[in-house]
Design a protein around this nucleic acid. Structure first.
Lengths: 233, 233
DNA sequence: AGATGGGTACTGTACCGTGCAGTTTCCTCG
DNA sequence: CGAGGAAACTGCACGGTACAGTACCCATCT
């Protein structure tokens, strides 16, 4: 979890408390003995609750209770609820981002492109239907009007990143003549949504939905790759 | 948190702003014209506000103010805020449903299948990126944990309905040998998400996003149909 | 002792839903 | 056609509740 300051370029919106900001600027301070433990506890509790009940559905008191900490402690570590929220979301997004980077592997150098695509499709689908990821997605969409910058940031970092990487790989494969993808971005969109579309849709509308079983996942991925290759081969 | 099935009877009373010559018939105990007018005003105001600011972001007082009606009147017409909300959503869903039914046209009897698919793709994409539809989608997703039945109901009625109709049409075309779609449901998913996936994703994460321009829409639809036909022809 | 983190209790606010007294609008009946 | 009565609407105030953020004091560590 990120304990340092988090990408402040994102939020222009700041609470109107002028003097407070001047006074309490976080400093290059030593390893706070106690606050490390409590801060981590708060972050973990807040992550759980925000993902499960949303921004308005989660009170600071709930967070404090789950973290086994008082509300005052929450406010000692985070300026206000909005900051806490954006920090949490950015933090979870970062892990999604790392996972996304890992996803592509060496697709553009793969000897057997269809096999590599199949493997990619399976991993992609499994990743995106993981409950945590679905919850994050729903959370960000839900708060898109309250935190539009955050929504754009998430979209750029997580799904956008995967799409861009995919497009790069397809462009390379196009150069090598392994695929016929003159518009690699469009090809990436097509691949992504052939694989994910239906599952994503279902998951977004059913909070209690389970991720697809392995066999189902395999069938969906294979079908998607088959359609994709029929068009882009 | 009432998790019972959605009350369909509420749906009937949404429309009907005019007395419809009920005055001339003495026997027919017509509903008070005042109630009708007021109710319609409240429904319209609530629809606007819920779609724009969400469930928790809209107060009953806001609704009353926009409807130019007192808060008490809102509660005289609707049991509570939850009932009002579900009624609104179901009402808007019903119009989406009607539109969806209209969408398919006579695809299964079309002489020129590729042309018909192209037309269908264009209309489908235009319909689903309309601001009202996007707002409804985001609203339902946002409240999916508070109103899970409502979310499932919406999903079944709007996107589910289109998908089912599409699958039926593909099955018929498969029988006639015009398409090679042994799994028509999968084919319908593929078609739908090839057309809509990327646009839907963008729209969900960017509340200020505009629907695509006509030229862009056309390109997306044509590309989707091309890929679909390459696989299912 | 002094500083820093933490806990309790509080403030202020927003909002759902209701009660009530008075007023307007519609319907019916003489 | 016009009065009387009923139903609907208004405006306001209020109870109850939930919750973000804060004041103040205590505990602990150096």
């Amino acid at each position: 979890m990120p304990s340092g300051p988090v990408d402040d370029t994102l939020l222009v919106r700041v609470s109107a408390t002028g003097p407070a900001a001047a006074q309490g600027t976080p400093r290059e301070r030593g390893p706070d003995p106690r606050s490390v433990r409590t801060r981590a506890a708060v972050v973990e509790a807040a992550t759980t609750l925000f993902l499960r009940h949303g921004y308005l559905g989660t009170s600071v008191e709930d967070i404090a209770a789950l973290a086994a900490v008082s509300k005052r402690t929450v406010y000692n570590n985070f300026q206000d609820k909005e900051r806490l929220f954006t920090e949490i979301v950015i933090g979870v997004t970062a892990t999604a981002e790392r996972f996304a980077d890992h996803l592509l592997g060496a697709l553009s150098d793969a000897p057997d492109v269809p096999a590599a695509l199949g493997e990619l499709a399976r991993r992609h689908l499994a990743a995106i239907t993981a409950p945590q990821v679905v919850r994050l997605r729903r959370l960000v969409v839900s708060e898109a009007s309250r935190f539009p910058d955050l929504a754009r940031e998430y979209h750029r970092r997580a799904p956008g990143r995967v799409l861009a990487a995919l497009a790069d790989a397809f462009a390379a494969l196009h150069e090598r003549g392994e695929l016929a993808a003159p518009d690699p971005v469009r090809a990436a969109e097509h691949f992504s949504f052939l694989v994910l579309g239906a599952a994503l849709d279902r998951a977004m509308f059913d909070p209690e939905s389970e991720p697809p079983a392995a066999a189902e996942l395999e069938r969906v991925a294979d079908d998607a790759v088959r359609v994709f290759l029929a068009a882009y081969r």
